[in-house]
Nucleic acid binder design. Structure first.
Length: 466
RNA sequence: GUCCCCAUCGUCUAGUGGCCUAGGACACCAGCCUCUCACGUUGGUAACACGGGUUCAAAUCCCGUUGGGGACGCCA
């Protein structure tokens, strides 16, 4: 049997981090089994669904590297098929017309609330003669829920979950305007698309019982369900915008790498022994339902940052340089890209995301004169520096070779002759050449900048006034 | 409120009755490396929610309590 999974978001907002993880798990499970992964847009809510959201979801999945098989299924387009199933159930006597008004339902809800019970439709139209139907009122179609016994769902994550059937009510399948409800649409689509494994958020666990009623009434086999616990914010409360319920594009803009986010999301709620750094190929090989944890997990930016730093260090220098050049507005400047590529080994271990990387790399391609941070400025106007810098420039102007090791040797000799520590020479150089007090190793910086540029920057530093 | 789910270091987790004086990772603290900052490296602090059982033996099984989460729509 071929494994078929799906990711079925409703396009009412961006692809948030929880959805991204659900998509990842479904994708991984399908790829692991050499199966099929479908994307289905659940756009039956015509008011809240937007094209922009559909766009955001598609872009987000592409950015994350989660490719789906076949055409995207748009649920709304299948509404006639959903209605057909509802009518089939009606004809088979497994569903019925209900003429309850919204007001009646409201009363029922209030009464239930007052009695401390969950809202449950009382089935008042379940067994009434169709001849009693009032005229001028469009009915909904409700399913006949089982009255006794219990429904058991064997969940891939939660195990055996059971609920008494008296908890279930005759839910609506088809609205009075003839459109299908979510419960109906999902079941019909999952069946028609031959979905074998449904992996979705925990919030759907109780829905599963209701969906089972439809499968049973139609005589269809239900897919295998796995409900993964939700992601919470750092404070344990529901994930809010403030702590990470952002669209994946927000993570992209913050400078996170798709590979890092994939690894992070994988480990959030799934484990494979002590393994932490897991490549996507490895994840496909290892992913299983049994590794999914049962308790909700909290989103932790610190760990994401750490992972992102790791993947940055692993990344190709040219790729990184291109990305940095792009954010620095130098994408079409081949010389800058080349220079940044050479500088990347020293740069990439010092940033935890692409944004920081670009900020730290800026000095390399900035045009003179540089802007100085306060501390760098202070170093350059200090008497010691003022006394030392001209002679240092002289020494370097006379340098025969311009390689980091040689430049460092020169500085060491210079420091020794002046009776100061190497740092007393290196920090002024750093301030003058990078405009900052922190940078990659300064002699490496000098080499990459080149003799001409380096000496001009040093000359600029001479002009600085306190 | 009713129903359902969950519960190991601050966080993500390993653990499926003896290998547990509970392992790893992030974060944190200290040392090393060192021209700065990182990276790297060495070490450290830190957890089985609580109470009852079952068993020769329980983080692991059962019951209860507490705490968290989810679902209770002609939304998805």
């Amino acid at each position: 049997m071929t494994v078929v999974t799906r990711f079925a978001p409703s396009p009412t907002g961006f692809l948030h981090i929880g959805g991204a993880r659900t998509a990842l798990f479904n994708w991984l499970y399908a790829r692991h089994h050499g199966g099929i992964f479908h994307l289905r847009i659940e756009d039956t809510d015509r008011v809240r669904s937007t094209d922009a959201a559909i766009e955001a979801i598609i872009d987000g999945l592409k950015w994350l590297g989660l490719d789906w098989d076949g055409e995207i299924v748009y649920q709304f387009a299948r509404a006639p098929r959903h209605a057909e199933v509802a009518n089939q159930l009606l004809a088979a006597g497994k569903a019925y017309h209900c003429y309850c008004s919204p007001e009646e339902l409201d009363e029922m809800r209030k009464a239930a609330q007052a009695a401390g019970k969950p809202m449950k439709y009382d089935g008042r139209w379940r067994d009434r003669d169709p001849k009693d139907a009032p005229t001028g009122i469009k009915p909904v179609i409700r399913i006949k829920a089982p009255l006794a016994g219990e429904t058991i769902v064997v969940d891939g994550v939660q195990g055996e979950v059971r609920v008494g059937n008296e908890q279930l009510d005759d839910m609506i399948l088809l609205r009075s305007d003839g459109t299908p409800t979510y419960m109906l649409s999902v079941v019909v689509d999952d069946h028609d698309m031959n979905i074998t494994h449904v992996i979705r958020g925990d919030d759907h666990l109780t829905n599963t019982f209701r969906q089972r009623m439809i499968y049973d009434s139609m005589g269809w086999d239900a897919p295998h369900f796995s409900h993964i616990p939700l992601i919470h914010g750092p404070d344990g409360a529901k994930l809010s915008k403030r702590h990470g319920a952002l669209g994946v594009e927000a993570y992209r803009d913050m400078g996170y790498l798709p590979a890092a986010l994939r690894n992070y999301l994988l480990r959030l709620g799934w484990g494979h022994g002590d393994d932490e750094i897991i490549s996507t190929a490895q994840a496909i090989e290892w992913f299983d339902l049994g590794g999914i944890g049962r308790s909700p997990s909290r989103f932790d930016f610190a760990k994401l940052d750490n992972l992102n730093g790791h993947y940055m260090r692993q990344s190709d220098d040219t790729d990184l340089a291109k990305a940095v050049a792009d954010t620095l507005g130098k994408a079409n400047d081949a010389a800058s890209v080349a220079l940044l590529t050479r500088a990347m080994p020293g740069l990439k271990s010092r940033a935890k995301n692409l944004k920081e990387l670009a900020e730290n790399a800026g000095f390399y391609v900035q045009s003179r004169p540089l802007a100085f941070v306060e501390k760098a400025q202070a170093i350059l106007v200090a008497p010691e520096t003022v006394a030392l810098l001209p002679k240092l420039i002289e020494t370097y102007t006379a340098a025969a070779t311009w390689q980091a090791a040689a430049l460092e040797e020169t500085a060491r000799g210079f420091a020794e002759a002046a009776g100061v520590k190497l740092g007393a020479v290196a920090q002024p150089l750093r301030a003058a050449l990078t405009g900052s007090t922190q940078s990659p190793p300064i002699f490496e910086v000098m080499e990459i900048l080149g003799k001409g540029e380096a000496l001009m920057r040093l000359g600029d530093a001479l002009q600085i006034k306190g």
